[in-house]
């Protein structure tokens, strides 16, 4: 189980980006992290995976626990070995490697080669397309194929928590559905917990069990996926189902019902 308690993050020691984030991801559950551009979703994932420090970001306050162990001071490699993997935003494949080599890098820290081989076949069974492309140079794959590759690479780490940063970005609706289908199946087959960052709120809430809504570095709302889907304000501001096209901040409405978890 992953538990963030009042995490505060700043970049370069000055720009404060997260103002006390508290999030829990139970074992085997899919959790969505939603919010507008710049809300701090990616930063939250990087704080968990330890990649934050590489980008000159720092956790100033709060704790991150993984199965009861503090991980907020650990580096990315050690966190990876504990079974937490982050697939970065923007389909960052290793361009000059072929698809299969990309997948193998995902399994870098695993020493049991038989298991790695088995998981390679597992990834190919989820993404048959990747198997036929395994000798192709990743940089020339299509956007959808690259996204499959990035997710497959995360699967190859045999993670207990897989964090996906905007897997739907720039993909055709049909490919998005296909990829989310696979994410769902992977979660059910392997009982891997998934922390999902998405702009595509509809798809995310159809996949996730639970969701958090972030705004300006704070969690402004959280609840079960069904609860969030049913809320008028979520529909209006994040799913675009609105009578008036006027753009308002989430903060302007429904002040009273929000749980202020940062207090």
């Amino acid at each position: 189980m992953l538990k963030l308690n009042n995490i505060e993050v700043s970049y370069l020691n000055v720009v404060k980006v997260l103002h006390g984030i508290s999030i829990t991801v139970e074992n085997g559950v899919v959790v969505a992290l939603l919010g507008a551009n710049g809300a701090g979703k990616t930063t939250t994932l990087k704080a968990i995976s330890g990649l934050l420090r590489i980008e000159e970001g720092e956790i100033n306050d709060g704790t991150i626990e993984w199965d009861g162990i503090r991980i907020d001071k650990k580096n990315a490699v050690d966190i990876g070995k504990l079974g937490i993997v982050q697939a970065l935003e923007g389909r960052r494949v290793f361009e000059h490697l072929n698809a299969e080599e990309n997948l193998l890098v995902g399994a870098f820290s695993r020493s049991n080669l038989k298991d790695v081989k088995a998981d390679l076949n597992m990834v190919y069974s989820y993404f048959p397309r990747l198997e036929s492309l395994k000798h192709n140079i990743a940089g020339y794959l299509s956007g959808g194929e690259q996204q499959m590759l990035v997710i497959g690479r995360a699967m190859m780490a045999a993670p207990r928590l897989m964090m996906l940063d905007e897997p739907s970005l720039g993909l055709a609706p049909m490919v998005v559905d296909q990829i989310y289908d696979i994410i769902k199946r992977f979660n059910m087959d392997r009982k891997t917990a998934i922390l999902l960052v998405e702009q595509n709120v509809r798809v995310a809430l159809n996949t996730a069990h639970y969701g958090y809504v972030m705004e300006n570095g704070r969690v402004v709302l959280d609840g079960s996926a069904d609860y969030l889907k049913g809320r008028e304000d979520v529909k209006e501001f994040y799913m675009g189902i609105s009578a008036s096209g006027e753009k308002k901040s989430y903060k302007d409405v429904k002040h009273y019902k929000r749980r202020k978890r940062w207090l």
Binding site: V77, V85, Q86, H96, S109
Partner: peptide
Amino acid sequence: HRMGIAMRATADDQLAVQACAVP
């Protein structure tokens, strides 16, 4: 070799490779 492949990957993307727990 696993390390050799990871070394080539590092040239392509130093951040992504660390997300794969490559030191």
